[in-house]
């Protein structure tokens, strides 16, 4: 395993930022760490980078404790944190030249072109937009090519085209070079197609760890009728966003029609739907919050 944590916990004073977390990332795997702001994603990444000490439990990256052997970890891993910390008075090219020592000029130029900063490489960073800073942070994380790439909110501030390009870059790193990638994001739709596994964090605890398909609920039967409350009672379903929802295949069309007619309601729409990943994610978070109350 490239990353392994066992009961990893972090407290800041009385506040628990991370509840005991067991996590593993295998070579070549692409995993998204998803959760709302303040869910503990960045804290988790900083513990992987050896910037923060665990309060309890243990963490190992490439088999070593990153707090004790950070240099060994950083020889093989690249981290990019959000928002991207950069030196405003230095140019993009100067950042890469000094941060990625030993990398040839040609490679630096290629990395800058790859993130679309070739034409602005000699401008000072203070003249960059947030999206450009994000691209530069990505470029520095690509040099030299790591075995493990850890990106914190990499799509923040990027326009749709840049997000597509980012996906292409990451896909190519993964496909062509077997780079393992850990992405922390609160916008799952932007990396949905890229990841093998999702880890959903909420208030420092893991709510879900599995494939994106596993997070989506099974297909649902969605019925729209007038007098929805009556219809929900007649069909034995739940009212969700202006529709009665049942498990897919629970009732056929004729049965629904007959029950609604008997209850004095009229059917408008009948069909099976599958929740998007984002909807599934939000549903999990809402359910967790309701449960917590």
């Amino acid at each position: 395993m490239l990353i392994e944590t066992h009961q990893l916990t972090r407290r800041f004073g009385p506040r628990v930022a991370l509840r005991p977390i067991d996590f593993a990332l295998a070579p070549g795997e692409v995993v998204a760490l998803v959760g709302p702001n303040g869910s503990g994603k960045s804290t988790f990444l900083k513990m992987l980078a050896g910037f923060l000490r665990p309060s309890d439990g243990r963490v190992s990256v490439f088999g070593v404790d990153p707090m004790r052997a950070r240099v060994d970890v950083m020889r093989r891993a690249r981290f990019s944190f959000a928002p991207p910390p950069l030196y405003d008075r230095l140019t993009g090219r100067e950042h890469l030249r000094h941060l990625a020592r030993g990398v040839s000029r040609e490679e630096i130029d290629r990395a800058l072109d790859r993130v679309g900063l070739g034409a602005r490489a000699d401008d000072r960073v203070r003249a960059y937009s947030f999206g450009m800073r994000q691209r530069l942070a990505l470029a520095q994380a690509l040099l030299p090519r790591p075995e493990l790439l850890v990106l914190d909110e990499p799509t923040d501030g990027l326009d749709p085209l840049a997000i597509l390009e980012l996906r292409d870059v990451l896909r190519s790193l993964h496909r062509d070079h077997g780079v393992a990638i850990l992405l922390a994001t609160h916008l799952i739709t932007e990396v949905d197609a890229l990841v093998d596994r999702l880890v959903l964090l909420h208030e420092g605890a893991v709510l879900f760890d599995g494939t994106p398909d596993g997070l989506r609920d099974r297909p649902q039967l969605r019925i729209v009728a007038d007098r929805l409350d009556v219809a929900a009672e007649a069909l034995g379903g739940r009212l969700v966003d202006g529709a009665v929802v049942l498990e897919a295949g629970a009732l056929d069309l004729e049965t629904v029609r007959a029950r609604l007619a008997a209850a004095g309601a009229r059917l408008h729409a009948f069909g099976e739907v599958r929740a998007s990943l984002e909807e599934a994610l939000l549903a999990r978070l809402r359910a967790e919050r309701t449960h917590a109350r």
Binding site: A49, F51, F81, P85, L86, Y87
Partner: peptide, 10 residues
């Protein structure tokens, strides 16, 4: 937080 840039290097 630019200290992170250096600390994220070997």
């Amino acid at each position: 937080r630019t200290i992170h840039l250096g600390l994220a290097r070997p």
